[in-house]
């Protein structure tokens, strides 16, 4: 269970000099990345964070991973506060972040086992998990190859296996289908559906995306994010009913950009 409660985060953009020779600097620009964002993701369900580019999805997930401290609000995993006890919450989460760099001189297995050891697994357990994940993600032939020269899909699978190596009850994915082809996307979707089921561990899965079809096909719950705020949440059917639309894309545009349209009208 992941609960995010009214979080906010703003960044001060680096100030640029007014001109090359001027010592005076332009006033600091404040970027409000996240203003008031709340949602909760239940166990055994896939929760999609849907929003346009720059809506604050990545910032929110980085706060959840403890990389950035929120200015306001509270984030918790299984009731444990992220800010106060970040190491405990990290141990309960597998995070596939926006940056998913691998070590090119290590094999896929070594990349996965490295994270397993850092998560506190024994070497044997880490190797066993690497084998099990390779089976699930259909990447067995890749396991003993160095990751240098992997395709986008192969990299994604390795990074996902690395994030899941400690079999976490919570899985957080930041735009996981970026750069994946149709087959790889389908494979990922199947894997996530399996992880949601009781046999797969009834994981609490949160993933962010800006692709409508992804959400329609996969998500049990949807949180629409716009301008750093969570503007609507519910199942796909509920959101369609609320907006009175039959097309989910129309419904999303109505929900996400209601403010602008209101101003324009």
């Amino acid at each position: 269970m992941i609960v995010i409660d009214h979080v906010a985060k703003q960044f001060v953009a680096p100030r640029a000099r007014r001109s090359a020779w001027s010592l005076r600097r332009a006033p600091a620009a404040v970027v409000k990345a996240v203003q008031d964002l709340s949602f909760s993701a239940a166990d055994g369900r896939i929760t999609g964070l849907l929003g346009p580019n720059g809506a604050g999805k990545t910032t929110t997930l980085r706060m959840l991973a403890g990389l950035i401290a929120p200015d306001a609000g509270r984030l918790s995993v299984d009731g444990i506060d992220v800010v106060a006890r970040p190491r405990e919450t990290l141990a309960r989460m597998g995070v596939l972040s926006d940056a998913r760099g691998l070590y090119p001189r290590l094999t896929a297995r070594e990349n996965i086992v490295y994270y397993g050891l850092l998560q506190g697994l024994s070497r044997d357990a880490a190797h066993a998990r690497a084998d099990a994940l390779a089976q699930m993600l259909e990447m067995r032939p890749l396991l003993e190859r160095r990751t240098d020269g992997f395709s986008q899909g192969e990299r994604m699978k390795t990074a996902l296996a690395r994030a899941l190596v400690h079999d976490p009850p919570h899985i957080v994915l930041d735009e996981p289908t970026n750069g994946l082809d149709v087959l790889a996307t389908r494979g990922l979707r199947d894997a996530l559906r399996h992880l949601r089921t009781p046999e797969g561990g009834a994981k609490c899965i949160v993933f962010s995306t800006h692709i409508m079809s992804e959400v329609e096909r996969l998500c049990d719950d949807v949180v629409v994010v716009s301008h750093g705020r969570s503007v609507a949440s519910g199942t796909v059917a509920e959101l369609l009913a609320r907006t009175g639309e039959s097309d989910f894309e129309e419904a999303f545009v109505k929900l996400a950009f209601a403010q602008e349209r209101g101003v324009a009208a």
């Binding site: 972040s97 940056a99 998913r100 760099g101 090119p104 850092l118």
Partner: peptide, 17 residues
């Protein structure tokens, strides 16, 4: 190098000090 590869952010998402 770790920053350039984008592997530092995932590394810090491990519960290690």
């Amino acid at each position: 190098g770790e920053r350039e590869r984008g592997s530092l952010e995932p590394l810090l998402m491990n519960p290690s000090e």
